[in-house]
Design a binder for these strands. Structure first.
Lengths: 237, 237
DNA sequence: CTGTCTATCGTTAGCAT
DNA sequence: TATGCTAACGATAGACA
């Protein structure tokens, strides 16, 4: 048998950062780089003890995700903290201030604000017209302030969910734990099974290195399933 | 003057993937690796033409995020798509299903909240005109200029777009529209101005390479601002 | 907190399985 | 479609600005 001579791979070649033309290559690159990205994320988690959530939609439009401790809680936290000014707003001075206040609010404060939101939602429920009045009344204000009133509903779902979780935690432990809402989330998670949130079934954990491992759920249809990654962390908690 | 002799850096040293003890080191590493992570993400975006959202809470508990085209729409898409998939499929009994349940359980509560919100929106539809008026009124102003001034406000445009889209969908279909709210948001976004979601002010775009660029808004206090990254992509749209 | 510099370490493109 | 292989490329620890 004659060995093919020119085999020693040319090694990694430089590629331009532009959309890969060859569909086949693209798929392989996506897989590899996605793994690499998640690994980097897990390392960052472990090294710095921070929370990270990553959501990726593949070329085939499949959702992949990485999260520590889990995607949902991090997303909730982000959405709750980032978005918009609050509603107790009413008469305070500059809106900018309101935004700052809202953003700076500790989790505890945020919790209370969320409670307000929930209450407000209840009120809204009873009389949709109230909102109409509010909207019209607020027309005299800057547009975004008005929008906030409306937009709230879109986010309310998430806020409420967050509130529920926060409330649970509050019940369990007096207070202050919310500062580490992450910790709480982890606690919740670990109480059920694993310290990390992993939707993995056949994931493979490599020995002494942190590895992302992946779950593959056979989708009912192409768009049906989500691929989620966790990671085997060391003693972060 | 005598040159210090032993200076040539020892180059990169191997480090264990475990929590970095030195607070100072940790901070530096976090910054660097976060940048690296975001860069990797942007490359993956460009190379494979996919959508990615990353949320990171720093050791100081500051939220950083990367998103293409934007965090919110991707998150929405993920949240909307993840929960429901074939829940009612219901009689398989395989491990697969358990995972499905587990996954769904994590969002079950949210799901119900969502349903509530949907109903709420249904009611809200009656107040649709008010919203339209608000929207139109806002378009007459330079709302986007204002957004630049305040980070939070930027979210509002997106949120507003989402809400409006939700409203449309509500009109079209009675329920379940939230599943697709993301796509709508994206459409809205691109039609309005920029194809990419970037809360950047003083971001610097490097020449021929995709670079994450960052906005830095002077925070009122340490926890005050949110850092969000976009990236200058090529013709993804 | 981000940028710069250097020597290394880790990632990965192209192939093959 | 996902790994294994190998060499080249890119990321980055540590020190400093």
């Amino acid at each position: 048998m004659v060995m093919k001579i020119k085999k020693p791979s040319q090694g990694r070649q430089k590629i331009a950062i532009a959309k890969i033309p060859k569909r086949n290559n693209l798929q392989v690159t996506f897989s590899k780089r996605r793994s690499g990205l998640f690994k980097k994320a897990s390392e960052l988690c472990t090294l710095c003890g921070v929370e990270i959530a990553i959501i990726v939609f593949s070329p085939a439009n499949k959702p992949f995700s990485f999260g520590h401790p889990e995607v949902d809680s991090i997303v909730d936290r982000f959405v709750a903290r980032n978005p918009y000014p609050n509603f107790q707003a009413g008469s305070t001075g500059s809106t900018q201030q309101l935004v700052e206040v809202h953003r700076n609010a500790s989790v505890h404060e945020l919790n209370m604000q969320l409670t307000q939101v929930v209450n407000q939602l209840e009120a809204e429920k009873k009389c949709g017209e109230a909102l109409d009045k509010i909207s019209k009344a607020s027309e005299k204000q800057c547009w975004w302030e008005r929008s906030v009133e409306e937009l709230g509903f879109h986010e309310l779902q998430i806020l409420k969910a967050s509130l529920e979780e926060l409330k649970k935690n509050m019940t369990k432990q007096a207070n202050g734990i919310l500062m580490e809402s992450s910790a709480a989330a982890v606690a919740n998670c670990s109480s059920s099974s694993s310290p990390f949130f992993m939707m993995n079934i056949n994931g493979v954990v490599q020995g002494d290195d942190l590895r992302c491992f992946e779950s593959k759920i056979k989708p009912t249809n192409q768009l049906g399933s989500a691929y989620s990654f966790g990671y085997a962390g060391h003693s972060l908690f």
